[in-house]
């Protein structure tokens, strides 16, 4: 409605368009503006592609690092699962006592499985695996203790250690052993990598924000005359800023896609080197690519950076442009 002239209907209201139709037109209008912004990018290919490439490459590094961390975590997880507690049984414990301890442990909810390796089996295994072979036959009695192998339900190092201490207190247990050291080391390395990735990602993402912001700023300045005319014929700031926000949106979409392609290519190229390392530790390791959620996340992040960067510029600069007069 007009502010100055009561009864002067303006705009879409004058058309008496139905509510549903107006609602649909809202979307049609936005899609049309989005496409025209894309067309605008197409008309200045050199500048647009440079910006998109810068965005894509800036996003590639955090994305690739994230994928590497994800794969490293996968290794560390598979080792954490293998974490098992060995309970060495006292020499003087009877078979019945071992049997009853095993039953108690099986009932414990903190424990998923208990396996008994008796001293004869252990000897046979040792004889087969070690090179002592014949020499062991000269021993008068078997020096190896009975062992209960306990799988903890919670494979976190801290929880496993607590369980180990609890089990070590059992009467017939000589001592308990948990091979944690290198597991904690691996976890520390993964954690360090994660934090480094977050720090690098924050730096690069803020760079992306400012790159978009600056590109949009230049684009606003180059259209100053046009913006003045639009203001003179009654365009609101939000009307003028919409195409620029859509430009930011497209920068985000295209930059995100580029980052996806480049990081997947990088990962594919590194595949050989990575599998060389991982095969040293674990045979059935499979390199994990980006899943759908992560892909959507990357695009969403890129789009929000594009729109956000654009918004930073339009807020300030479109407001600042005022027509200087007829």
């Amino acid at each position: 409605m007009s502010i100055l002239f009561t009864g002067r209907a303006t705009g879409a209201k004058a058309n008496r368009i139905g509510l549903v139709r107006r609602f649909l037109m809202f979307f049609v209008h936005h899609i049309r503006q989005a496409l025209s912004s894309l067309g605008e990018l197409w008309r200045t290919p050199a500048a647009s592609f440079l910006t998109i490439i810068v965005l894509g490459l800036s996003l590639t590094l955090p994305v690739t690092l994230h994928l590497l961390v994800k794969n490293a975590q996968q290794i560390s997880n598979s080792f954490a699962k293998a974490a098992e507690i060995n309970l060495f049984i006292r020499e003087d414990a009877s078979a019945a006592q071992i049997q009853s301890l095993q039953t108690i442990l099986k009932a414990d909810p903190q424990i998923t499985a208990v396996r008994h390796i008796n001293k004869a089996d252990a000897m046979a295994e040792f004889q087969a695996a070690s090179s002592f072979g014949e020499a062991l036959n000269y021993l008068t009695e078997n020096p190896l203790p009975d062992v209960l192998v306990v799988m903890p339900a919670n494979t976190e190092p801290a929880a496993a250690r607590a369980l180990m201490q609890q089990l070590a207190a059992e009467r017939i247990v000589e001592f308990a052993k948990l091979d944690l050291e290198w597991l904690t080391r691996l976890e520390a390395v993964v954690r360090l990598m994660q934090q480094a990735v977050i720090a690098i990602a924050l730096l690069l993402l803020s760079a992306v924000l400012f790159i978009v912001s600056n590109t949009i700023r230049l684009s606003i300045i180059s259209k100053q005359a046009e913006i003045e005319v639009m203001k003179l014929v009654g365009a609101t700031d939000s009307f003028i800023q919409r195409p620029f926000l859509y430009t930011g949106f497209w920068f985000g979409v295209l930059g995100g896609l580029l980052a996806f392609l480049v990081s997947e290519t990088l990962l594919w190229g590194l595949r050989g080197a990575i599998s060389d390392i991982t095969s040293l530790y674990q045979s059935d390791f499979q390199l994990q690519a980006m899943n759908l959620y992560e892909f959507c996340g990357v695009i969403l992040l890129a789009v929000s950076l594009g729109v956000g960067g654009s918004y930073l510029s339009v807020r300030r600069h479109i407001r600042a442009i005022e027509p200087s007069g007829p």
Binding site: S2, I3, L4, F5, R8, T10, K231, L232, V233, G234, A235, T236
Partner: peptide, 8 residues
């Protein structure tokens, strides 16, 4: 409100 004045 300036844009709306300019429309009139």
């Amino acid at each position: 409100q300036v844009p709306y004045v300019r429309r009139d």
